[in-house]
Structure formats: C-alpha cells, structure tokens
Design a protein around this nucleic acid. Structure first.
Lengths: 340, 340
DNA sequence: TAGTTTTTCCAAAACGTTTTGAATAATATT
DNA sequence: AATATTATTCAAAACGTTTTGGAAAAACTA
C-alpha cells in the first residue's frame, strides 16, 4: 500500500502538499496537483481509511443490522432493500456493511458495532412503535436514517410512506364505491406501520360514519389472510370489501372469498398495499389487484441520500421525507353489491 | 468516548503505563493495574479500534461477501452459515461484517473492501474450481479461510469435507448392496464440490469395475432431481440406485421413482449428501433417507478458529482441516433388486 | 529597486493507541 | 553507606492522514 509519505519523498514536496493536492485544495498549483496525481496513480495510492477516520471521524462505511428469522417470508423485503441500498450508497462512494443480529435485545448489536467506532452511521428499518434502537442512537448522537417512522413527532432523519394515509385513501375509495362494511386485515401491531394503518383506518371509518368495520391484526402470510377472511365472511353481516396489509395476504383473502362461493369483485372487493416486490406482482392476480403502491426499491436512493446529507451537516428536521403512494385501481375492486 | 489520555490524566501516570496496564503487560505492578482498570470501568473506556488498527493492523472485524441471487433456494445455506459464523466469531471477540456482491466479477467487492483497509481477513465460501477470489487474495497476502477447497494442493487455510470421499463411500456402499447400475445426480460443475464429487464417483466406479453409471450434472432444485431421474429411469437399463447431491434433489428423485410405479428401496435405492439444514431433514423422508452427513453448522466454529489462528500467526499449511463425514444408513437404500 | 500583495508550500500538531528502549525508583547485597 | 540488581514507569516515535497557522516564494506596483 502506497502512502502519502512515499509520494512526498518521490516529488520532494511535503506530505501536507501531497494531501491537499489529492484532496482538491484550491491553493495548490494546478501543475503541482497534476504531478502528485500522476505519481499517486502510478504507485496505486489509496487513502488509508483507518487513518482518515481517526482524523476526520469518517470511514465511508455505514452499517445495517440484519435480523435473521426462521421463516423466509421477509426475505423478499430484505433482499430488495439490501441490493437497492448497496447500489445507491455505492453511487456516493460509501459501502454498506451488515452485521447479523442474534440478541434478544435489539440494541445490543448496535452497542457492539459502536465499540468499533468504525461506521459513519446506520440505516434502520422495520421499526417497532417507539423503537428502542432509535432512542439509543438518538441519546448518543449517532447518525442514522430510519425507513419509516416510529413515533408521531420524530426528531431524526427518515424516509417512508404515510401509513395512516394508506388506510384512509383505501377506506375512502371503497366508501365511494358504496361499501359500508369494510374489513382491515392488518400486520403485526408491534410494527409501527401496522399501528399507523390501524389508526388511519379507524379515523377514516369514523369520519365517514362507517360502523361495520371489522379488524384483524397480526397477519403475515397468505394463510393468515385466508383464515381471518373466512372468519369475517362467516358472520351475519359479512364485509363487502377488504383492505389487506400486503399482496400476499390479499391472495389468501381472495382464496377465502372464492371458497365461500363468492366472486371478486362482484360480491366482495379486495385491495392491498403493494411494496412492488418482484415475486408477488399485483397485476398477476386474477383479477388484477387494486393497490396503494409504493415500491420498496424506490426508497433506497432517498434513504442513502438522506443519511449522507445528514452526515454532511444537513439538520435532521430538514431530512424527513415521505414517499409517494399511488392508488392504482384494477379489477379486484368494484361497486358494493346490492343487498339481497 | 473516554480515551487513554483521560485515564492517564486522572491517575497521574503516563499513557504508556495505562495502555500496558489495560493490556496485561507483566511488568506493570498489580496495584497500578487495578487502579487503572477501575478508572477505565468508571469512565466507560473502550479502545478506539480505528487507532488500534492503525498501529497493530488489527480491527477485530472480518468480512464475508454475500452474493444475492434471484432464487431463494440458497437461503437455508446462507442463513445457516451466517448465524453460525456470527456466533462462533463472537465467542472470540470478533465481529463478522457482510457486504453485498453486485458485480459481475466476483473479485470486485473484495477490491472495494480492501481499499478501506479495515477488515482483518475474510471468510470465503462456495468456491468455484480455481476460484479467482482465492488467487486474488493469495497474491496480495490477504488472510482468509475458505470453506471447502478450490484446487488440489491448496496453500491457504481451509475447512471442508472431502467431496471425492463423499461419492466414493456412497458408491462402495451401494456396490456392497449388489447395485451395478448406480446413477449420480450432481450439482453445478462450476462449483468445486460438484467437480470433486464427479471425480470421486468416476474413480470409485472404475475401481469397482462398474460400467453402467449414468451421470447428470447441473442440478439444484427438487424439480431437477425429478426430471433427471425420470430420464434415467426411462432407459433400457435403468439405474437401481441414485446418489444425489442434496436431500432436496433426492426428494425429486423419489417422486420420479414413484411416478414410474417403482418402490423405494425395493426397486430403486436413493441416497444423498446431507448438510443437515433445518428445513430439509433426511429423517422426515418416507422412507427415511440414507445420507453422507456433514452438518453445515458444524463448520462454523472451525472456520472461525482457523481464520483467527491464522491471523495470530499459525502457518496456513497447518490450518487445512477436513470435516468428518458420517454415513447414516436408513430406509431409502436396500439390496439391489433381483433381475427379472 | 524596494515595498506590498498574492500565491504556494510547509512545520507542527492533532487524532488514539501501541511499542521500543531507556530512565527512574525500589530493593537487595556487600 | 555504597554498589548492584530488579521492578516499574516513562519519553519518544510510530502508524497514515488531515488541518491550522505561518513561512517562503512569486508576482505585482510604485
């Protein structure tokens, strides 16, 4: 590994000048800069990042802790955001490094990595409500960006969708189609997104004077959608429309509707939130699925940019952005059925 | 973050003494050492790893590059080795950090991470024959351990199974049961393990004078096992026994055997190599599967130990170890059928 | 030519830690 | 008490890079 000292010795200039030449300081003469760059290229000089971080506090590496789960259902999300973030950060000459979380306490892996004092910041995803990781990093002034929000008035950089609006827009659309009995099949309530969608659903239903709005939480898989929808459809006043937390859950709901001899959308409308993951495509449903769409992949560049802008000095409150949600109406939703 | 300087100032001893006290140097008085440790504990002192690496060349972090693939079939392997390695390294106060490989050239992500000069070494897995990553790291004298081998006379630390012996023991066992027509359904030949198993199969068959030994390579999924076994069973002299690259492939072979109206093991014996992954358990097969067994999880601690011993100075040639293979005979294999 | 201004490069210090070789203090021996 | 030996601590340098504040060189002006 070539060092500044070697370049300095070969050219007869100080280490200071060599450093400033390579780093584009304006007071270095252009000829000097060119000569330094030529020798650096020839010797294959690469700055020692460890030494840089010791002086500047920056290594050019940001971290993300990965929770390995026994079930594989989250893998699409996981891989999608990993590959997207790696590419987005790479465009800004930053490396994403991962560590595996194997502790009961979600804060522990952050403590361990912080002991190394090597990473410039963190990207956090899948927040729980009032996420302890967020509180921990805020207390220590460690830079991070959160994908989503974990509290109503966040003081940290973030990028995500407005999950209350996801529910509200869905409820309004279905209400406009004449649906009075609208069901929500929601995710696990420990996740902040699910909690927000529940709140948004309640608010919207109340605002529209809807009173028959059954809710089931804690759904993850297709089979959850199936069993919870079956239960709801078995009641005396079954819902005529479902809002599902994901396209995967919607597949289960549609299967349940059909197993009851009902038609989509003629008898029951089904819609879902769509992260636009590669293996569960809404347009491949029969009928094609109506969705509130916000591709997970579209979050990667903003997340990378927000974190790096924050590291470069932009105040956190200027780095809270929302991802657009697109309502796409397809064949899985239609007017409420006439009451028999 | 407390520093040695702060401890030094509080106690009135030099930074040198404080450093040596904390690092257990024998010439430091025991009383001195205790006092230093107390202040360090009180101030929450943690060594700055960046500064340490600058002086010692060690950060306490080793790296692994992860190739993200579109299909999910490798995830079991991936997760198994990740979680195992993280735990094993953690026991030796070393952090495993991951980076995502998104380049066509498998060497590129190593180059990028090496520019950082932060990691102490690498763990490499899934080698191809004469793996370019191995050559690259050897040329640069970068410490690493390889899970498996990629060449006949490796000069680097490694831990893995003898894949030639996997095939040889399987062939011998089936030959001893009277089988004369033994088929191999092998993995992708670009992987070193598949290449070695092919060689071992050929050698063993030749040594036993077997001449009807059909081979199919490039199998990964259950469906590969199914279609390749169907093809072989459709011939004029179908095999009476199969050796499969994995338990997943064996499931496909068994399905093909049954679709042909044949019985396992009465008409056709089926065995496989078993990495003991959690979701594809050989004893859950019907009948329970005969296997050459080498749990992937059992490789993790040796891999971690070998790499760290190498970093601590043990020569590479003393750090090449083989994992035991256990031949477990169960109900899927039996004597060759009598010729009709 | 002398004085002033601008441009360019540099010495020193810093970052936090480790290590070498020596200095100092304490203890033992004569 | 003086000398020798052992135990303990220390100053300085190193690691590679960046930055502050200033020195030196070059260019400009009167």
């Amino acid at each position: 590994m070539a060092t500044l000292k070697e370049i300095s010795a070969e050219l007869g200039w100080s280490v200071t000048t060599v450093s400033r030449a390579l780093n584009g300081f304006p007071e270095v003469n252009e000829n000097t800069r060119k000569k330094v760059q030529e020798v650096a290229d020839r010797l294959g000089y690469r700055p020692n990042r460890v030494a840089q971080r010791l002086v500047t506090g920056r290594s050019g590496m940001v971290g993300m802790i990965v929770k390995i789960k026994a079930d594989m259902s989250a893998d699409q999300t996981f891989f999608e955001i990993l590959t997207g973030l790696t590419a987005a950060l790479s465009r800004r000459e930053t490396d994403l490094v991962l560590a595996v979380d194997q502790d009961d306490d979600p804060v522990t892996p952050y403590k361990k990595l912080l002991e190394r004092d090597i990473l410039d910041g963190f990207i956090l995803n899948a927040p729980t409500t009032n996420d302890p990781r967020v509180s921990f990093l805020l207390e220590r002034g460690i830079p991070f960006v959160l994908h989503g929000q974990d509290r109503p008035d966040p003081t940290y950089p973030s990028f995500g969708i407005d999950n209350k609006a996801v529910s509200a827009r869905s409820v309004k659309m279905l209400s406009n189609l004449g649906h009075q009995r609208i069901a929500l099949i929601n995710g696990k309530l420990r996740h902040a997104y699910a909690s927000d969608r529940l709140a948004g659903f309640d608010d919207a239903a109340r605002g529209l004077g809807l009173t028959q709005t059954p809710i089931a939480n804690e759904a993850t898989y297709e089979s959850d959608g199936y069993t919870k929808a079956l239960d709801m459809l078995a009641g005396p006043t079954p819902p005529t429309a479902f809002i599902c937390a994901s396209t995967v859950i919607a597949a289960g709901v549609i299967r349940a509707v059909r197993d009851r001899g009902l038609r989509v959308p003629h008898d029951v409308s089904v819609m879902a939130h769509d992260d636009a993951l590669p293996l569960t495509r809404a347009i491949n449903f029969d009928p094609a699925l109506t969705v509130t769409r916000a591709p997970l992949r579209d979050a990667c560049t903003p997340l990378a940019d927000i974190l790096l802008d924050h590291l470069n000095g932009t105040p956190a409150l200027e780095l809270q952005r929302l991802q657009d949600i697109e309502l796409i109406v397809r064949g899985s939703t239609g007017p409420a059925p006439k009451e028999a």
